[in-house]
Every structure is written in structure tokens, then in C-alpha cells.
């Protein structure tokens, strides 16, 4: 987990990848060389100074286990980027249900941006209350949309 000081500097990738499995596409994907997977079964380690939270690794991770959090995004809100592989995609400026790791709705969130990717792992930028930045990891679309 990055320190408060690192979070204060801007966006950073968070790896929720705690099990040793044979996998390393994140390390190959990072354009800044910030991610290291020494042996293929090791969990990734991040050079926090090199990472700028661009999110390229998120589209490559087969486990969809990488998120980006930016506490410098606003005064009361933080930016959380999540990987999303469902159709339909949410639209920017709409409000969606914010879900935690157990799929429970813990509030609402505004979709700031939808970054589509050719490999179909799209990235959704969410504005969430600061205190929920470490909780929100999924969304559910409103108005009969499904998550």
C-alpha cells in the first residue's frame, strides 16, 4: 500500500494481486518500467516513484486486479479507475451505484470518463467520496442496466 505522501503526489496503481500465480503481462505492459515480476510466479512489485497511474497495466491484467486511485483529484472526492468488461458501457457524466469488493452498494459515483480499449478491457474513471476510494471496486448501472 502506498504511503500518504505518495498518494498526495497523484495517481498510482494498486495491485490487488496477493496470490502467487504464473502471470506477468502487467510488467510487460508498463511503459515506464515501474512494475517488476521477478520470477513469473511472484506477485508484482511497483516502483511508486516511476508509476504515474496511467492505467495501461489495468487493461492487460488477466485477473482485472489492478486499480488506480488519485486522491489529488478533488477536495472531497477521489478518482478511482476500475477495469470493466460488461456491455453496455456506462456513459460519462452519469451516476452509477458504487459497489465494494463484496458487491454491496455503498454509495453512488459519477462516471468521469470511459476509456475503451481494443482488447475490450475498458477503464471507467469514477469520482467517489474520498473515504470510499479504498472501498469502491465495481459499479452497477442504474435504470435497469446491469453490472
Amino acid at each position: 500500500m502506498p504511503s500518504q505522501e505518495r498518494f498526495a503526489k497523484g495517481p498510482i496503481a494498486l495491485f490487488e494481486c496477493m496470490q502467487q500465480i504464473p502471470c506477468n503481462p502487467c510488467a510487460d505492459a508498463c511503459p515506464r518500467g515501474a512494475i517488476t515480476v521477478k520470477e513469473i510466479n511472484d506477485c508484482p512489485s511497483l516502483n511508486e516513484e516511476l508509476c504515474n497511474g496511467c492505467g495501461v497495466c489495468m487493461t492487460h491484467c488477466p485477473g482485472l486486479s489492478i486499480f488506480v486511485v488519485d486522491y489529488t483529484y478533488g477536495k472531497d472526492v477521489a478518482l478511482v479507475k476500475i477495469p470493466y468488461e460488461f456491455s453496455p458501457l456506462p456513459e460519462a457524466k452519469t451516476v452509477v451505484d458504487a459497489l465494494n469488493r463484496q458487491g454491496q452498494c455503498i454509495g453512488t459515483s459519477e462516471v468521469i470518463r470511459v476509456q475503451t480499449s481494443p482488447n475490450k478491457t475498458n477503464i471507467i474513471w469514477l469520482s467517489v467520496p474520498r473515504e470510499l476510494a479504498m472501498e469502491v471496486r465495481s459499479i452497477r448501472l442504474k435504470k435497469g442496466g446491469r453490472s
Binding site: 504464473p22 502471470c23 506477468n24 510487460d28 505492459a29 513469473i40 482488447n119 475490450k120 478491457t121
Partner: peptide
Amino acid sequence: THKFFGSKAEFAGER
């Protein structure tokens, strides 16, 4: 339809 694990030599990260 999911992305594969492994390394580049086994096409990891590709569906």
C-alpha cells in the same frame, strides 16, 4: 473469452 495468464511466450494477456 477471458485473458490468459502466463508470460508473453504463451500469449499471456491475450484472450
